[in-house]
Design a protein around this nucleic acid. Structure first.
Length: 878
RNA sequence: GGGCGCAUAGCUCAGCGGUAGAGCGCUGCCCUUACAAGGCAGAUGUCGGCGGUUCGAAUCCGUCUGUGCCCA
């Protein structure tokens, strides 16, 4: 029944199209197709290829993580970009891998140990690190398998991990260079300390949220020498070493330089004048705790005050006295109670809502802590990173995100890179017995011997992630991969990690790669939200496991839904209904192709010349080429939502709803026209499948191979706009659509069943509709007029007249209602356009093109008014 | 407190100076031989309020209200 150019294709389906099931079942094909792609090596990128490179790195997922919708979203976009470029003839590298996630991973393994009743200290450092590696081999990287399910076309042969040997070399090299350039230094500062993770974290790993706290006003000193200070952290008063006031504040001028008594301790502390104190806030006097507050630390420095630490690494009071051993929050209550008993509390405000920092990993309240840490001096690096965007070498999409980037880059504080962890890149600094500090490179022997020891701390995970765009390619060696694939072509990532990751890559890339930015374009996407636009979270109970949806609806459905929502930089809501709709779309493609195969659609041989084609053929080819151009334009602009939407509408509203239906008449008539249409049908579907492939790779692969008998759409050529356009055919089909729709409306409103056949006379003289008589009759279920044909309704439309014999009275009222409604609309249009045209200012100032368009609209509206008025007049009075 | 957004159909969002759109949902009819995961037809909006610019504003400017995010 068909051409024989199919070959056995999908598992589970016989090759004969009539045996293709009427429903697409993704579960049966996806996994096999993916494994075949990998086995065929389609995703492997070759250094020696003569094709132009296209490089994109995966934002490395966390080794402890599993695929969530955010990943699925990002991966869909990157995969679509990469697949298209591969089809366009680029040597496409999508670089996969993971980061070692220092804190998160160490937490996971420590929890595991805790269940065995052990701590990492019981094991010791080496054994613990060994244990983490073991965990990584056994349980880490679950996400990698899930990426296969999604269809990610990554080059698995190049998979990297931030802790592997090559990337560790990159870290060592970078550290040494920065250190020797004076851009890495060690200093004692106030850092953000997590008393649960027991490590320092950087500024951006602190999340601020409004908490209910308390604001307590405490009287320090007595009598004339009394000063009231307000604090939300009463427990730190044990470590106060001064009270500060503004130098111009008359209220306290007489006390500056004197000492007052610190309650509960009996210690005497100085009153200092510091211009950074805000005299308007509270009493205008502040307590100064240099060891436990960043601002106080600065005041302490300026006034040479001692730093008195009163909390240990777990946030427990260490100061001798009754509060020793209390947790910081217990201590707060106890100290306030003691002060109250002492008559020192002047005022209490509770709850006092204020922003409190929390550890982004475990949500524990951050404890500012004075300590000795390693830092990256970001000034020059951030300047270069900002300039790269400012001078246009790097573009941020969408542009509205640029102010955010600049705001961050231009105000960045030095970056605390040391972490008090065991899992990570140990800081490559050795201390000698006589105070020596050396930084050996990765290929140099570290000093040994008595008294030498390596720094205990490890580096922030982002330090190694920042090197990702080039460390994965072999840097610091000048490898063939680095030559071929650096810089990356684009970075696709969420706007939420613009600071975390993009900033780091920009700084490091520019520094390490001689001023060449790691990528010319940063394409930012939004965050995935639920169907009501709410943030997804486990605690909110609205988090969705993408694997669940992928299992039930297919990966293509999830991918299509995400791509279709992907407006640049804008959050994407997703709900099950939408995934279902996408699944339906895949099924529709499946069935349209099935129809084509059953009717002998072919891709063999050249396309017939235009004069051998029906108007419908020429119309759909014209639209196909326009759609190729449209998809290309949107892809180049990272407009995934628009690409998807354009393809969806072309496929469904034009190919499926009209072209396939029109082709049925031609195919039934047989002959040369049918042969030509079979070829066009094959062509349109074949190109459409290639266009859709980057977004919905599985269903398109299954169908494309069935349709063409060729190897794989993954390595097929990306469609090109042939330039073919046929305005006449487009107008002709538009007329067919107009007439068919109009008569369908009439039928529906007259209560005719869709399948009911009606005798009709078509008067098409003088219109472009003549060749479409048969198609029109078929689409509208119109029978030829017989002997006893009696006109009961006449519908003039598109210059033609359709006379129907409904064999009985028609519903005049329904018809009057319909016509009246249309007449009103036409009159409104006529009035609006003629009003514009009688406006002198409009005629004088509007562009000719616009005026012309309005004239056309007026003419059309007038015709419609006449037509509808006549039709109404012709209706029998009821 | 500073910065950046957003307010368009019941829901989620496009459109961003010249006829208000999509998906889902909704109503009615239909298992019409590719597809009921479908077909056909239909309903629904003072484009947040108020000013202004313009021949013309959902679209540009100002302002107010509501709302979200980032940074302090």
């Amino acid at each position: 029944m068909t051409d024989t150019n199919q070959r056995p294709t999908n598992e589970g389906h016989s090759s004969a199209p009539e045996h293709l099931p009427t429903q697409y079942t993704p579960a049966e094909v996806e996994e096999t197709l993916y494994e075949r792609w990998v086995a065929a090596g389609y995703f492997e990128a070759h250094d020696k290829s003569s094709k132009p490179p296209f490089t994109v790195v995966i934002p490395p997922p966390n080794v402890t993580g599993s695929l969530h919708l955010g990943h699925a979203f990002e991966h869909t976009l990157i995969d679509a970009l990469t697949r298209r470029k591969r089809m366009q003839g680029y040597e496409a590298l999508w670089q996969p891998g993971m980061d070692h996630a220092g804190i998160a991973t160490q937490n996971v393994v420590e929890r595991e140990l805790a269940r065995e009743g052990k701590s990492r200290h019981d094991l010791g450092r080496d054994a613990f690190v060994e244990r983490v590696w073991q965990w990584k081999e056994e349980s880490g990287g679950r996400i990698l398998g899930q990426m296969r399910r999604l269809g990610d076309g990554v080059d698995w042969s190049r998979q990297r991990f931030t802790m592997d040997e090559g990337l560790s070399r990159a870290v060592r090299t970078m550290f040494k260079r920065l250190y020797e350039d004076g851009l890495i230094y060690r200093a004692e500062r106030i850092i953000n300390w997590c008393p649960r993770c027991l490590t320092a974290i950087s500024d951006i790993e602190v999340e601020y949220q409004d908490d209910d706290g308390e604001l307590v006003s405490i009287r320090y000193g007595d009598g004339d020498a009394a000063i009231v200070v307000a604090t939300t952290r009463a427990e730190t008063m044990l470590g106060d070493t001064a009270v500060a006031v503004h130098p111009d504040d008359e209220r306290y001028r007489h006390l500056v330089g004197t000492e007052i008594e610190l309650p509960l301790t009996g210690r005497r502390i100085p009153v200092v004048a510091d211009p950074h104190v805000d005299p308007e806030f509270g009493t205008g006097a502040v307590k100064v705790t240099p060891a436990h507050d960043p601002n106080d630390f600065e005041i302490g420095r300026r006034h040479d005050l001692p730093s008195l630490a009163v909390l240990d690494e777990r946030g427990v009071i260490t100061a001798h006295g009754p509060f020793q051993g209390l947790d910081r929050f217990e201590a707060r209550s106890a100290i306030v109670a003691a002060l109250r008993a002492d008559g020192r509390i002047v005022a209490e405000k509770r709850p006092y809502v204020h922003a409190v920092g929390h550890c982004s990993r475990c949500k524990t309240t951050i404890e500012p802590r004075q300590s000795l840490q390693w830092w990256v001096k970001v000034g020059p690096l951030a300047k270069a990173a900002g300039d790269a965007v400012r001078d246009g070498r790097v573009t941020i999409h969408p542009k509205e995100m640029e102010p955010r980037y600049f705001g961050w880059m231009d105000n960045m504080h030095d970056w605390c890179i040391s972490r008090q962890l065991w899992w990570g890149h140990r800081i490559p600094i050795w201390y000698g017995p006589n105070g020596e500090v050396v930084c050996p490179g990765p290929d140099e022997e570290p000093p040994t011997g008595p008294g030498w020891r390596q720094d205990e701390d490890v580096l922030d995970t982002w330090f190694s992630s920042g090197l990702w765009p080039f460390s994965t390619l072999g840097w610091p060696d000048r490898t063939a991969s680095l030559e071929k694939f650096y810089p990356n072509s684009v970075l696709v990532t969420g706007y939420d990690i613009l600071f975390f990751w993009v900033a780091r890559m920009m700084m490091f890339g520019l520094y390490a790669m001689d001023g060449v930015p790691p990528f010319p374009v940063v394409a930012l996407h939004g965050l995935v939200r639920d169907q009501f636009g709410k943030k997804m979270s486990k605690s909110g109970g609205n988090a969705v496991d993408p694997l669940d949806w992928m299992n039930r609806y297919g990966s293509d459905a999830v991918r299509f839904t995400l791509a279709r929502g992907a407006n640049p930089g804008v959050d994407v809501p997703i709900g099950e209904d939408w995934v279902q709709a996408s699944r339906n779309f895949c099924n529709k493609i499946w069935n349209a192709t099935r129809f084509a195969l059953m009717n002998g659609a072919t891709v063999q041989g050249p396309l017939p010349a235009p004069d051998e084609l029906t108007a419908a053929d020429r119309w759909i080819l014209s639209r196909l080429n326009a759609t190729v151009a449209e998809a290309d334009a949107y892809y180049e602009d990272y407009q995934f939502a628009k690409v998807s939407d354009a393809l969806f509408h072309f496929a469904w509203d034009e190919v499926f709803d009209w072209y396939v239906e029109l082709s049925k008449t031609t195919l039934a008539q047989g002959g040369a026209a049918a042969t030509a249409t079979r070829r066009v049908l094959g062509e349109v579907l074949e190109v459409m499948l290639r266009l859709l492939h980057p977004v919905v790779p599985f269903v398109t692969e299954a169908l494309w191979t069935a349709l063409t008998g060729r190897e794989s759409v993954v390595v097929a050529e990306w469609p090109r706009d042939s330039g073919f356009r046929d305005a006449a055919a487009e107008a002709e089909i538009a007329a067919v659509q107009q007439l068919v729709t109009e008569v369908r409306r009439f039928r529906a409103e007259q209560g005719l069943k869709p399948g009911q056949r009606v005798p009709a006379r078509l008067t098409l003289d003088g219109t472009v509709l003549i060749p479409h008589q048969e198609a029109i009759r078929q689409l509208l279920r119109l029978d030829p007029e017989g002997e006893d044909f009696r006109v009961t309704a006449t519908l003039p439309v598109a210059g033609a007249v359709v006379a129907l014999d409904l064999s009985g009275a028609i519903d005049v009222e329904a018809e009057r209602k319909r016509l009246t409604k249309d007449l009103r609309a036409a009159e409104k249009e006529r009035d609006q356009t003629s009003a514009k045209l009688s406006n002198e200012a409009f005629l004088a100032k509007a562009p000719d093109q616009v005026v012309g368009r309005i004239r056309e609209r007026l003419a059309t509206a007038e015709q419609e008014v006449t037509r509808l008025t006549n039709q109404l007049a012709a209706l029998p009075r009821s």
